[in-house]
């Protein structure tokens, strides 16, 4: 019984009946004979609409998403970018803020380089086009990148960015969370270590409530430990 109380939403599996009212169907559901059923394994969120938040799955890019990508190939006029999705994304040379020659491409961003991109186009056959975010290409030359499931990204960010603000305030690190589940952390090595530890904990416990409180406690304890050792 106690376990039940700790869950803020119910776990559903594909085919579970969610509602008798077809107008309430939202993401992660489908309608059959006027009834709403779950399409994925996830948490059912029932308010005005019924939606299912997946617990796992692969990231599918949407226009406007800001992601962290890794260059996998540089061709004549495009950078091929791995964005932690089943599909490869492309950034065309003309998207670069200033006019450059093909030969300069690898110098600006070579194979293995990580950068922050914005998804500018996704067509029905999943051809994905990227551009630098806010007109300026940000290549990540320091810090570290960790990967979490994209389904946990909202929990890592927290309501109105609360979790990220918490991490930034307690640790002296810069954090950037990509929609595709890649998280860039930049700071002192021990702060980075702790940030990664905390993020992994958030990923594991993303489906539980009262998470922010537990993370606050964890951060306090860990910080304290670090200071005592010094």
């Amino acid at each position: 019984m106690k376990k039940q109380e700790k869950l803020d939403k119910t776990i559903v599996v594909p085919g579970d009946l969610l509602s008798e009212d077809a107008t309430k169907a939202a993401e992660g559901t489908y309608v059959e004979n006027g009834k709403v059923y779950s399409l994925t394994y996830g948490l059912a969120d029932e308010r005005e609409k019924v939606r299912v938040i997946p617990l796992s799955g692969k990231y599918l890019p949407a226009i406007g998403d800001v992601v962290i990508g890794m260059v996998s190939d540089v061709s004549f006029s495009n950078w091929k970018v791995d964005i932690n999705s089943p599909y490869e994304a492309l950034m065309h040379i003309s998207e670069y803020p200033r006019r450059i020659e093909s030969s300069e491409m690898a110098k600006i961003m070579g194979v293995g380089d990580l950068a922050i991109f914005k998804v500018v186009d996704v067509d029905p056959s999943m051809k994905i086009e990227l551009a630098p975010r806010e007109g300026q290409l940000r290549v990540l030359r320091s810090g570290r990148v960790v990967e979490v499931s994209y389904t946990k990204v909202p929990r890592v960010i927290g309501r109105a960015g609360s979790m990220i603000s918490l991490l930034k305030s307690k640790l002296d690190v810069n954090i950037f969370v990509g929609k595709n589940g890649r998280i860039w952390i930049n700071g002192k090595a021990e702060d980075e270590d702790l940030a990664i530890k905390v993020i992994k904990r958030i990923e594991r416990e993303a489906h539980t409530s009262g998470l922010t409180d537990r993370i606050t406690k964890l951060l306090e304890e860990e910080k304290h430990g670090v200071h005592e050792k010094r």
Binding site: P14, G15, L39, Y41, S56, G57
Partner: peptide, 11 residues
């Protein structure tokens, strides 16, 4: 398949 998050009409 469900564990992998694949969308399905049922099990």
């Amino acid at each position: 398949l469900a564990d992998a998050g694949v969308p399905m009409r049922g099990l």
